[in-house]
Write a protein that binds this DNA or RNA. Sequence first.
DNA 1: TGTAGACCTTTGTTGGCGCAAATATCCGCA
DNA 2: TGCGGATATTTGCGCCAACAAAGGTCTACA
Lengths: 178, 178
Amino acid sequence: MNPLDDPRLTAMGLLAEVHAGLIARMQPALSASGLSDIDFETVLRLGRSPWQRLRMTDLAAQTGLSTSGVTRVIDRLERDGLVERVACSSDRRASYAALTDAGRARLEAVLPVHLRDIESCFTGLLSDDELTAFLATLRKIRDVVRPCATAGTASAAAATARAGEELHLPRQPQQPRR
Amino acid sequence: MNPLDDPRLTAMGLLAEVHAGLIARMQPALSASGLSDIDFETVLRLGRSPWQRLRMTDLAAQTGLSTSGVTRVIDRLERDGLVERVACSSDRRASYAALTDAGRARLEAVLPVHLRDIESCFTGLLSDDELTAFLATLRKIRDVVRPCATAGTASAAAATARAGEELHLPRQPQQPRR
DNA sequence: TGTAGACCTTTGTTGGCGCAAATATCCGCA
DNA sequence: TGCGGATATTTGCGCCAACAAAGGTCTACA
């Protein structure tokens, strides 16, 4: 049998195809709201974070972008008024990217149609049991390939101190990023 | 409940995270062989195709790249001697990208470690039943988001004529790509 | 206190990719 | 045969992101 038809390659290809296909399906609704893919992810992550803000570095860790990439994404979003930079009072090197009211509004405006997209191309295709099993499998893989993607979230902060009561979280010993 | 914590967003995020994480895990082995991610996909798809060749347009359809993107990928691979352009005898507009012996060798050299990577971060984590169910779910989604990603493959050609006997497959009525 | 090293962010540079336009070719139809 | 529209590939252009370097700041330790 041809080694190029190995079922592991097929499995990997299938996963990539599904991911790419889903992204392509979501794209139109997002760009209709003037948000690129990565813009949306950024704004969403900010919206989900305590005080709707995140340090640049944490945003980079969560999104997988380089820190310079984050700088420019926030440049664009700040130019459009969806995000603003806020100096960090406890560490003058750092700055927060904080969602503005306009950013929050933009996010909430796209959300319904985006959720409908996910529903119609993904979650809605599966039975409850099937979806549950699928997500459990994904989590199993995620825990192996991405052990530390929670920088700046409540759970990560809780690991070091009672979190969320002060905005300037103490530095935590970050696992080397490679 | 915060609409930003909708389980559909979580599901989508999980899938994206897994995909990105897996890609990141595969990267080192591939780039150690001098192949970028997209290079590897291209070479692999050529290797799997009849006569180890594919028309530029079909390659674009399979990879999701634009046709100009394919032009430049093949430019690079041809410069490195892994692929060569072959004129199509039945259609002087078209050209094939054909895997060279060096390309085939390069592909077979990376394959073992790449398969081991997939095994250790993905398929090897799951029981047989779990993997089967996972792939079935992926196929279900794939069929919805990507109904036509088989351009230039045997199955696609078989739909129009007894295929594979002549290299210059007859044009098939391509579903509009948008 | 002073200093070395780590850390956070930004900026210059480079390479990749999509879009639109240009060129060559094919095909159906009068 | 000759023409118009469709198709295959390439090229010019602009945007986006990674990498590397630079400047400012923090922290541990002597």
